[in-house]
Design a protein around this nucleic acid. Structure first.
Ligand SMILES: [Mn+2]
Ligand SMILES: [Mn+2]
Ligand SMILES: [Zn+2]
Ligand SMILES: [Zn+2]
Lengths: 143, 143
DNA sequence: AAGCTAATTGAAATGGGTTATCAATTTCAA
DNA sequence: TTGAAATTGATAACCCATTTCAATTAGCTT
């Protein structure tokens, strides 16, 4: 039995509602995707090329966009590429990015998260997701 | 006398420090840029094409990137394009975005800004800019 | 003012990431 | 099993942005 029953059920529900089909490729991509916290289309393509050399890059892109529509993934434009976040991973995090060397540090800060909720509430919003990126210089690049 | 003395001085200071030159094109682009709150390179190109049909798009891009380095502008990847924010126009602010109707609320929260600095310091970073976007449903779209 | 040198420019080519096209294949309901 | 509709993979097209390069220009230095 697969480890990702819940996510697979979610996907199949979406497929059913939209007259879409459950294909071998979608199953393959789903399994690989759910093992990651976040990944780019290109990275996933290289991983899966070993298992199935005929899998096309376009299919990866199409399927990741499908996952976004089904609520399994969340696209995040990161620099020049798009990162697809695995929503089922609970550990939400934000990013510190060095604009000089490209170093990326992930962090979580619940105080910030709480203040975000307060700002939203004050404006009548209910937050579903958010994005916080801090750009600057890492310790090595400050000199 | 120009309306944008302060920004022009800032730019000239940056130019001086980096052996760069004050050109007719840079002056033209600066004037047009400072009239906007935020704009894309393409939009600026179309605006200026009327005044100077020979101005190249590459020059617009180069100059907007220069403005970013001089601290006059701030690049923000928004969807597929890059928005260049006029820093002098409105100061820094973040965004609440309704994913249903597209409504955007601007906000500023110094507690969050302070916590961001703490996170950065803890990781040895010095922040130059940041980006915080909260996605959710506005009061009208929650029903 | 004229000369010199390095920076800048515009046109065009190039680049990277993503989406569109389309004939062949596959899914799945009837 | 059959057939209509969705999907796939290869490739071309796209979009935005940067790079290239020969010609021009800015701004010192005589
Ligand atoms: Mn967060
Ligand atoms: Mn802010
Ligand atoms: Zn660095
Ligand atoms: Zn709304």
């Amino acid at each position: 039995m697969s480890k990702h029953q819940k996510e697979m059920a979610l996907l199949k529900e979406h497929l059913g509602k939209h007259q879409l089909k459950y294909t071998r490729q979608r199953e393959l991509i789903l399994d690989a995707f759910l093992k990651q916290e976040h990944i780019t289309a290109e990275e996933l393509y290289h991983q899966l090329s070993r298992k199935d050399p005929h899998l096309g890059l376009a299919t990866i892109y199409r399927t990741l966009n499908l996952f976004c529509e089904a609520g399994l993934a969340q696209a995040r434009h990161f620099g020049t590429q798009t990162q697809y976040d695995n929503v089922s991973h609970k550990g939400h995090h934000d990013h510190l990015i060095c604009t000089e060397c490209g170093k990326i540090v992930e962090f979580e800060n619940c105080d910030i998260e709480r203040l975000q909720e307060e700002v939203a509430a004050r404006n009548g919003f209910v937050i579903k997701t958010h994005r916080l990126e801090l750009y600057g210089l890492c310790s090595r690049c400050q000199h």
